[in-house]
Design a protein around this nucleic acid. Sequence first.
DNA 1: CTGAAAGCGCTTACAG
DNA 2: CTGAAAGCGCTTACAG
Lengths: 340, 340
Amino acid sequence: MNIKDIARISGYSVGTVSRVLNSSSNVSQKAHDQVMGVVDKYHFEPNANARSLKRTDTHSIAVMVKGRYNPLFANILEKLHTYLDMRGEDVYVAYLDEDENEVQFALRYQKAHNPRGIVFLGGELEYFKQDFCQIVCPCVVITNSTQTLPFTNLSCVLTNDGQASSDIVDVLIQAHHSKIAVIGGNLSQGQISLRRLSGAIRRCAQAKIPFDMSLQYEPCHFSMREGYDALLRVLKRVPQTTAIFALGDVIAIGVMRALRDIGKSVPQDISLVGFDGIESSQFCIPRLTTVRQDTTRLAERGAAILLSMIEGTSRGSVCEIVDHTVLKGETVKNLSELDN
Amino acid sequence: MNIKDIARISGYSVGTVSRVLNSSSNVSQKAHDQVMGVVDKYHFEPNANARSLKRTDTHSIAVMVKGRYNPLFANILEKLHTYLDMRGEDVYVAYLDEDENEVQFALRYQKAHNPRGIVFLGGELEYFKQDFCQIVCPCVVITNSTQTLPFTNLSCVLTNDGQASSDIVDVLIQAHHSKIAVIGGNLSQGQISLRRLSGAIRRCAQAKIPFDMSLQYEPCHFSMREGYDALLRVLKRVPQTTAIFALGDVIAIGVMRALRDIGKSVPQDISLVGFDGIESSQFCIPRLTTVRQDTTRLAERGAAILLSMIEGTSRGSVCEIVDHTVLKGETVKNLSELDN
DNA sequence: CTGAAAGCGCTTACAG
DNA sequence: CTGAAAGCGCTTACAG
């Protein structure tokens, strides 16, 4: 069943059928009704390959998701998907490993499929510097800043990671913690971890709290398992630690479990704060004190910016910051009795 | 840059370039080297739309994921993706809501994209009965049984939900629990919840433990939030409950948090078991006693069965069961002091 | 408003 | 082994 069959059955030419299907204005009501009758009767769907082969304006948007198990991205992705569906876009999702080169993947995808636009959930700036110049369609990075890059077809939406980290570390400092360890991420690549760590260090410095990177910082991937192991490593180095800042909630959950397994309780023995505000962080025991990224807004703005770039209504690239919120949970103990 | 450009630059015809690209046997080594030189130099990627428009054998496989936030499916999907990628298949993933009609969606997708095969992660048998007859390509359902359906192009891979439920409820019974509540799912549709509940009831009956559906069973969607609320409802009805079987781990995590919020501790006051064995279940505090579905195997077998159906090497549809494992956590208390 | 025709970028029998 | 040509199922100027 193809457009020719519909043409034959409805008594019109393929051109007219195509016009009806694409709701062109140059069709009579009669032709429209006649054709749609046949289309509905046979549940006809035009072949997407042929359609996008011909069309100059495809309606497909690709989303590159960096990290397969990231609940924050899963959450943003779902909302993004819903939003783009509503706007009539076809969405293609590609999942990449945390370390894979998303720009090269996008490049290959662009050549094979010629999408209207690309969304990157997470992004490694180094890769963008190397290869993004070859990407011609509008793109938006969600959760990382591309402001320092010179590309006019590249925008970004993100949380102010530095400020948010500073805010959550502030919760620890207000509770009189001064022996703070930071766990998670990878500073050699991936600016997000670096920005979060810097925010934490900056806040410490303001409070005149010393922070020795080589002792008090421990990198790891964003997973419970790795958070678990990293906690053990860092506590071996600095057993006097009274509080931990995990750069992601999944890491924090692993940390919490590790502390329990070595007989330390949260927050009585050690306080803990996370980052992201994923659902699990508010259901675990104790409830995690963390900073919530506004996934709804990140998704909405990401989609809106991309579509406006595609439609040419926005002038060049933008970089938008979305507000964050500190969620007070049950994982921070106030060390000063006076405050209680 | 298209195949014509490559032909012009390499000095061969488009036919030959196409043959090189598709590694046909009828090409000289010289032509191959010449053409590939140009292809590599310009990083040429053939247009996927044109290619699959022409090809009778597409290399795309569609995956319908039922429920956007399901960590079990996320886990299976990741492995499935990896496996299919290795086999050179293009994978398209569609996320549907828990209640959406996946068969109608697949039908539309089939007409527009003509995939080689379709994987359903989760599936509502009612929808299959209504519309699956219109689907012509090989399909496999993962985590639900389609054995009772008469379609030769439909296979399935699943855990024996009834047996697994019986096994996990057995853990409660061995610990001398007899006042058990079951939480989760929706019996009016979705056979999985029903099979799990039935397994639980069967095991109770064997042990001569009464089970009153209208009192001791409480439905809810598979989410922490809904598990949380469902626990409150069921405990209001049967406050004497000593143990809870949550039909999914995410529900169990919500239940655990709700119990904490009403001042009950797990397992001292109430014991709890789950189903699925997702990562969080082994990091939460206390660690959840649950039954683990073998996601690696479900993904591997699902992919293998689908591919063998596509290649015509398997005869008709199959229904495979994958083994499960009981994970002993810290959420079940033995009520009899004698056993300790 | 409608039809006939060209063409999107490929693949694949068909000759040679 | 290679080239010329037909055709996959659509869309869209071009006439009328």
